[in-house]
Amino acid sequence: MKFERFIVCALLIASAGVAGAAPSAQAILAASDAIRNPGKPFALTVTLVEYRNGTQVDSNTLTVYSKADANSGQFRSLIRFVAPARDANKLMLKNGNDLWFFDPASKASIRLSPQQRLLGQAANGDVVTVNLAKDYQAQIAAEESVLDGDRQSRRCYKLALAAVSPDVTYHHIEMWLDASNSRPVKARFYTESGQLLKTAYYRRYQPQLGVERPTETVIIDGLDPNWVTVMRFGDYAWRDVPEVWLQRDYLPRFKPE
C-alpha cells in the first residue's frame, strides 16, 4: 500500500517539475488511474443495478480478474458472470478490442465487437478497469468547484481527454479530478460527434488493497437521464493472473476458486 501511495506522490511530484508549477494533466490522470486501479493483478466483484424511471429493472453480479500488460500498461480482464442464474458461469475476455464471450453450456466462444453490449447500459469496457492515461491525451481545461457524488463541493481540475488510440470505448472524455489528491470525482463520456453518452460519478471511497478507492460508480445515460446504473465494487483481492489465462483458448478452462 505504501508503494502505491509512493507512486501517486511520485507521479505528482514528477509532474510538478519546478516547485510551484501546475502539475501536468497527463500526470494527474495517471495518478487518478493509480487510485482506481490496483498496481498488481487483482480480482474484485462488481454488482450492477440498473434503474429505469426510478424503478430497478435489472441486477447482475460479476467477478473480474485483471492484469496490466507489461508493454502497453493497459489492463486485460476475465469477467465471470455470477448472477442471475441464467447467466451464471458465462465468461468474457477483454484484451483491448479483442473481446470474447464464452458460454460453458454450449461451449461456444463468440467474438464480440466493442459495440455489442451484454450488460444493458454498461458498455463491456465499463465493468473492467482501464488506465485512461495510456489511451487518452489529457489537457487541463479548467480548475473549478463541482459537486461530487456525495453532493459536497470539491475543488477539481477539469481535464479534457482525447483518445490517442482508435480502439477505445469513448472518443473523448471530460473528467473532474480532486485538485488536492487526484481522486476521480466525475466524468462525462462523448461520441466522436460530441453527443453525451453517459455521465459517471465516482464515490464511496474506501480503503481497498492499500489505497482509498471509489467503490461505487453511478452511471447516468446521456440521452435518457432516467436510465441509471449503479456499479458497486467489492471483495478486492490480489490474485495471480497467469498470462496464459488471457486468451480465447483458456476460456473453457477458467474456473476460479
Partner: peptide
C-alpha cells in the same frame, strides 16, 4: 444527476 445519485 441529483436524482440519479439519490437513487444510488
Amino acid at each position: 444527476d441529483a436524482a440519479a445519485l439519490l437513487l444510488a
